[in-house]
Nucleic acid binder design. Structure first.
Lengths: 144, 144
DNA sequence: TATTTTACTACTAGGATAATAGGAATTGCA
DNA sequence: TGCAATTCCTATTATCCTAGTAGTAAAATA
């Protein structure tokens, strides 16, 4: 399951994608109201997205946030990874932040790894295969 | 990410699959030692698996646990669902325990749903497509 | 310099996680 | 009948995570 924070992040990113434009800066307040996200919480999320180069921010008057790249170039998985961590089901099957499972007896002969690896690849294929632009377009139609 | 509990459950289930036999009852102590799982914690897990008809237990002397069905008929997803809950990334995309996302403005026009639905299907295809018997066989070879 | 807006730091309530402890109930065997 | 093995049940605990809230600092612009 995603955390609320992760979903908020994705919704905010999609909002920015929907309003993306060369010099179009969107206010945190606007996103918070439109998406019903607690404003202060959203600010913290946007800072994390900024630190991870998903969004760019500008302070002061006429400031706000915008995507760092075109919506077509940012995957849903990119946003989720930043806020909720790796897509994998275990540290040992993560590609972006691989690490040992502390409760694993012997990684070399782990019975679970092959399936969990396949699961990770399947999740990543979907979430990395769908850009924010795709999400904007997908409203209403659940096929694709 | 799976919880430790979920991984313990899956490892225990695979252990039972490896030692599956008509009247073969395996002790919790044996599984705990072989898989390095805290015994008391494992007992609680096995009780949950029993309540959800994944394993069958027998008390007293010569007691123990065994799978309720042939290892070929129990999917990795079945075990994970019992211990860690739905495979879906959000309640609204769960097939086995569907529910509303409390932070969702309007489910009908949710921008995230289509992708999350696809993600769920992808995860489920892998985890439901691999039985405990498959996991037993997959040791060593990570392809398949 | 006043106002807008993001950025930063600190704090908190509640719940989940990962156990541990102790004993009760059940079964088989001598 | 009683003892030992084993699962089953009820509590309790320490630690971390989640989902925020509050207040203030810093920056940019008009």
């Amino acid at each position: 399951m995603l955390t609320s924070k992760g979903k908020y992040a994705l919704r905010a990113a999609v909002y920015l994608a929907r309003h993306h434009g060369a010099e179009n800066w969107t206010l945190a307040t606007e996103i918070a109201e439109a998406e019903a996200i607690p404003k202060k919480f959203l600010e913290a999320i946007l800072v994390e997205l900024r630190d991870n180069h998903i969004v760019t921010s500008r302070r002061g008057r006429n400031g706000g946030y915008r995507l760092s790249q075109a919506p077509e170039r940012i995957g849903a998985g990119d946003v989720i990874r930043v806020i909720d961590g790796p897509l994998a089901l275990t540290p040992c099957t993560s590609r972006t932040q691989p690490g040992p499972c502390h409760d694993c007896v012997d990684p070399a002969i782990c019975t679970l790894r092959p399936v969990l690896q396949k699961a990770r690849d399947a999740i990543a294929a979907v979430l990395d295969g769908n850009s924010l632009a795709d999400l904007v377009d997908s409203v209403g139609h659940s096929a694709g």
